[in-house]
């Protein structure tokens, strides 16, 4: 699975990085990093990635299933 955060839609709610701590972190302004690039989701973090995507109030997270 691949996860991508849309830079233009993310508003820094921080829901994603609290639910997928192993996968995502945040910058000084509270926006998730990395943004705007596809990252590989390890098999044991697929659930976290889904929760993050489903909890983003902006719908900024795209998941691409393998």
């Amino acid at each position: 699975m691949k996860l991508t955060v849309d830079v233009n839609i993310c508003r820094g709610h921080g829901r994603c990085y609290s639910l997928a701590e192993g996968l995502l972190t945040y910058d000084e302004d509270g926006y998730v990093t990395p943004r705007g690039q596809a990252i590989d989701v390890p098999a044991d973090q697929v659930d976290d990635a889904r929760n993050a995507a489903d909890s983003c109030p902006e719908g900024a997270i795209d998941l691409l299933e393998d």
Partner: peptide
């Protein structure tokens, strides 16, 4: 509840600044 994308702090550019 894990999947929770509530709008309690609004959304878009005016997303609650004090949310954290």
């Amino acid at each position: 509840r894990k999947a929770n994308n509530h709008l309690g702090f609004a959304g878009g550019p005016h997303r609650c600044l004090g949310a954290h």
